[in-house]
Design a protein around this nucleic acid. Structure first.
Length: 237
DNA sequence: GCGACAG
DNA sequence: ATCTTGTCGC
């Protein structure tokens, strides 16, 4: 039903049975590579806001060296799959993959708001997006833990620790804001844990999240804002 | 059996 | 994720 070479991630409907979903996740994780095939270049961040059974997906492409904003784009879609912890890929990957194809500037690195290999089956959202784009390097950045335990204490900003789950390093915990909560970084595809951390740190400026994700979040919120104001206008007529 | 549990 | 005002802290 879902051939290993071309998982039909864009058409997974509502959750019928979890066995089928787990099989797809096993397929995704088997295709993930944590070998570095990274080319510093335009880096796209992706984030999604929600309201009224709609998804407001935002993307921001940032130049690697200058950190100039190269492109901002957003998209509104209907929700097709519920939020179920550990199955986020089925819910958000379709929207991100679609917005990615709408970008005018082709990115070489993707940063997705969610975990990559730091997932019980090494099949987080970033892995779903990554395996569908084998020519790019994809990184997952989450604000909360899903699984695993940090190996060291984090003190100063910029310090990080490997995240271990069942005896295996699945990602990293990175302190970006002094005295704040750390973020969780893990490979999505074609990148190692160390390089994932290096790239995320490269894009960290004055915020907790790396710039492409920070901007993508704003773009998604702006898309949601357009929807809200439109409906406010209709309701007052 | 009892929690934990990305967005 | 989203609902929400003022407000505690650096």
């Amino acid at each position: 039903m879902y051939p290993s070479g071309s998982t039909n991630l864009l058409n997974v409907a509502a959750p019928e049975n979890f066995e089928e979903l787990r099989k797809i996740q096993t397929s995704v994780s088997s295709r993930v590579s944590t070998e570095d095939v990274v080319h510093p270049g335009p880096t796209a961040g992706f984030d999604i806001a929600y309201e009224a059974e709609r998804m407001f997906c935002g993307a921001a492409v940032v130049d690697y060296e200058s950190m100039d904003i190269l492109e901002l784009r957003s998209l509104t879609l209907r929700e097709r799959f519920p939020y179920i912890p550990t199955f986020l890929g089925f819910r958000e990957a379709p929207a991100i993959l679609r917005l990615l194809t709408a970008l005018k500037v082709a990115p070489s690195i993707l940063i997705v708001n969610g975990h990559g290999t730091a997932h019980p089956s090494r099949a987080g959202l970033a892995c779903f997006v990554g395996v569908e784009n084998p020519d790019l390097a994809t990184i997952g950045v989450a604000q909360r833990r899903l699984c695993g335990a940090p190996q060291d204490e984090l003190n100063e900003a910029g310090s990080w620790s490997f995240l271990e789950y069942r005896g295996r390093c699945v990602g990293a915990v990175l302190l970006t804001v002094p005295g704040g909560k750390p973020i969780f970084v893990s490979p999505g595809h074609n990148i190692s844990i160390e390089t994932s951390v290096e790239i995320v740190k490269h894009f960290v400026t004055d915020f907790r999240l790396p710039l492409p994700l920070k901007l993508a979040h704003e773009v998604a919120e702006r898309e949601r804002g357009k929807y809200r104001s439109k409906h406010r206008a209709l309701a007052s007529e």
